[in-house]
Amino acid sequence: MSTPTHLTKTITDPEEAMTHSIQTPVLDRSPERRGPAEPRPRTRASLVSQAKELFTGLGPGIIVPLVLMLGLVAAAAIPAALAPSGPLDMNPAEAFTAPGTAHWFGTDESGRDVFSRVIHGARSSLLIGVLATVIGLGTAVVLGALAGLGTRAVDFGVSRFLEVLFAFPGLLLALLVITILGPGVVTTTIAVGLSAAPGYARMIRSQVLSVRRSGYVEASIVQGKSRAFIVRHHILPNVAAPLFVLATLGVGQAIVWASSLSFLGLGATPPDPEWGSMLSLGRLYIGNAWWLTFFPGLFIVLSAATTTLLGHGIQRKLKDK
């Protein structure tokens, strides 16, 4: 009655560890723990109740980040409607106003409303996060699929290449890319995307390999199905869901990294309302205006936490199915 696979599971790399830890079902949310289902009313309101059911069915693990995410997307889409003033509107008379009813998040050294700037900053942060993830995942899908579907020699080559890239940890690869491409918003996006790619590629490779070795793929091979058929009908659908989770998690990470690069002065340039560079400037006045440091950072954390929670929520949902 030994469970060898269970016991010998030792986590050796962070990516695997991350997915491993994420995939644990949270006991509190298992269906049998939930209270008895309410009797369904048979009135006209069935549409409402259906929506309600869908809502509760998703669970708070998805609903809360989803609502936050909608708020951020709204800020990114229609900042002018949400923010009381423009991101660059100066009012020197009101410089360094503390947070209050007039200025929720206070004002900066030029009297610009921090709340408005933070709201206007959502667009660039989300855009950079999404684009960097697209770049990273795009590169990773190519590399991961090559390694996972290719011959043994191709797999070996790609895996060694990834191993070399892993020796440039974290921001280092991004800094290397920026040295070549020069600082700026576009290059930051590319740099963040490329530096996230090796991690994704390794996960995609192992996912593809595990699907490839599964029983149903073997059965299809025996049935004489073509390679293209197997890739389309078995491998893609099974890799797509984890890929979606990865993308959601990746956006948050990319936002954090891109804002770090902006903070270091390599991304967005100061007058633009970018969270990282706002914080970097705000730190000059950390002794007398804490809000210049606090609020831009809070929004970075909020948006990254939102996508992380959403990604984990979706992952648990998929796992439950």
Partner: peptide, 16 residues
């Protein structure tokens, strides 16, 4: 912990 490790950037934590 998941959130803290994934979402809090060093520069904000240090500044706080």
């Amino acid at each position: 912990l998941e959130v803290v490790s994934a979402a809090v950037p060093h520069f904000w934590l240090g500044s706080l």
